[in-house]
C-alpha cells in the first residue's frame, strides 16, 4: 500500500489496531483518576470486537484511544502497524478523517442540528473524499428512507442513533468505533444496526464497539472484558 501523500504514513488495507502498555490518567478534583492501567489489546484487521465491562471501567476511554481521539500518558497505539502516538496532531487528524468512523455514546453528540439525514451522510462522504452515490443506500439499510429530509430534532432517539451510525459509516471508513451503538434502540432497530456492523466487518472493515447488548456481543467475533481500567481476561470468541 502506497504511503498516503497527505498524511505521510502508510496504512495497509483495513487497519488493525494494537494497544501496548496503555496508561491513561485524568486529573480529578480529588487527584488523578486512572482510567486505563497497563492495557494491552489487539483488534485484528477486518474483525468485529466488542469491549464489555461495567460502567466506569474505562470502555469509552479505550475506544477513544482506538479512534485516535485521545492519546495515552504511556504506551503505544498502532494503527495498521503505524505508531500513531508519535505522529503529529495534523497527521493524526488526517488519519481519523481518512480511516476512522466514530460514534459517540450520546446520539445528540453525533449529529449537527442544522443538517438533514441525507446531508449528514453526504457530509460524511465529502469529509472522506468518497463517492456520494450511496447516500440513500446506507439510510435504506438502516430504515431511514422516510426520514432523509428530516433534521435531528424531528427524529426519535432511535432514529438519531441510526443516523449517527450512518454518518460514522459514510465514506467507507476502514475502522469503525462505536460507543454503545444500540443503547437507545428498540429490538428491531438495534438488530438493524447490529446487522450493519456485521456487514461492515464482513467487508473487511475493522469494527470495535462497546456494548452491554447481548445481541451485539453475540454478533461480534471476539469480546474483550475490561474492569477497573484493566483487561479482565484474554479475548474470547463470542
Amino acid at each position: 500500500m502506497k504511503p498516503d501523500r497527505l498524511i505521510g504514513v502508510e496504512v495497509a488495507g483495513a487497519p488493525g489496531v494494537e494497544l501496548r502498555g496503555i496508561v491513561r490518567r485524568y486529573a480529578g478534583a480529588n487527584g488523578d483518576v486512572v482510567a486505563l492501567d497497563g492495557v494491552d489489546a489487539v483488534f485484528p484487521a477486518g474483525t468485529f470486537t466488542v469491549v464489555a465491562g461495567p460502567s466506569g471501567s474505562g470502555k469509552t476511554t479505550l475506544l477513544r484511544l482506538v479512534a485516535l481521539l485521545d492519546r495515552p500518558v504511556r504506551g503505544h497505539v498502532l494503527l495498521g502497524g503505524v505508531d500513531v502516538t508519535i505522529v503529529s496532531p495534523r497527521e493524526r487528524r488526517l488519519l481519523r478523517r481518512r480511516y476512522v468512523g466514530y460514534m459517540f455514546q450520546q446520539p445528540g453528540d453525533n449529529l449537527l442540528e442544522y443538517l438533514s439525514a441525507d446531508e449528514h451522510v453526504r457530509l460524511g462522504h465529502r469529509l472522506r473524499a468518497a463517492e456520494a452515490s450511496t447516500n440513500t443506500e446506507l439510510l435504506d439499510v438502516l430504515g431511514l428512507t422516510d426520514r432523509v429530509s428530516h433534521r435531528p430534532a424531528h427524529l426519535s432517539g432511535g432514529e438519531q442513533q441510526r443516523l449517527a451510525f450512518a454518518f460514522a459509516a459514510a465514506g467507507s471508513p476502514r475502522l469503525l468505533v462505536a460507543d454503545e451503538p444500540t443503547a437507545a434502540l428498540d429490538h428491531a432497530a438495534g438488530a438493524r444496526v447490529v446487522e450493519a456492523l456485521r456487514a461492515l466487518a464482513d467487508r473487511g472493515v475493522t469494527v470495535v464497539a462497546s456494548s452491554h447488548d447481548p445481541a451485539v456481543v453475540a454478533a461480534a467475533g471476539s469480546v474483550i472484558r475490561i474492569v477497573h481500567g484493566r483487561i479482565a481476561a484474554e479475548p474470547e470468541p463470542s
Partner: peptide, 9 residues
Amino acid sequence: MLLAHGVGP
C-alpha cells in the same frame, strides 16, 4: 464531533 471526523482547527 467534527474534530472526531478529522476536520481541523
